[in-house]
Amino acid sequence: MGLVLVCGCAQGAPTRWAVEEGSRLGFIANQAGADFEGRFEEFSAVIEFDTDSLQKSRFSVEVSLSSVASENDERDDILRSPDLFDVGRWPKSVFQASAFEHVGQNLYRAQGELKIRDVSNTLTVPFEFTIEEDGARARLEGAVELSRLDYGVGQGEWEDTTWVADKVTAIFALRLVAVQAD
């Protein structure tokens, strides 16, 4: 198969990466004082990233909110409902970033915008980008805390944060493989 790492030598164009099986994207939320984890089973991402080409790098992640899976069907149904994700009206959430900062070693920050429901907010996502020994694979991992109410996730009775905290941590661990240039 010969996957070749497309280096940033062609006009500084960043490497394009494909998201592999085994990648995870999810969240940790808090109910009644106890953290629980859930994930999204369907998501796609356009990752163009090179440590030497940060200015031209970009992320575009699309998450199917209806694919939420928190190991509890009742809760997943409620998450999909109008007062929370409202997947009937807004089935997808999108994160786009085109400004990156190297903060040290393998650590970076992506400045972008996250849209959930009908609300878009700027969001800075810290992450770690590690290229594997073979040069053709990489890991992109990180977590970012956000406020669900900032995105309207919690209408009606669910606006109350007594039993479901406002703060939610989005977590991601992507396994990437470099895509051969055309």
Binding site: Q31, A32, G33, A34, D35, F36, E37, G38, S70, E71, N72, R75
Partner: peptide, 14 residues
């Protein structure tokens, strides 16, 4: 089993 961990009065999670 239901992935609703127990929190003791919000003080500590079991």
């Amino acid at each position: 089993a239901a992935n609703f961990p127990v929190s003791y009065f919000g003080l500590l999670t079991l």
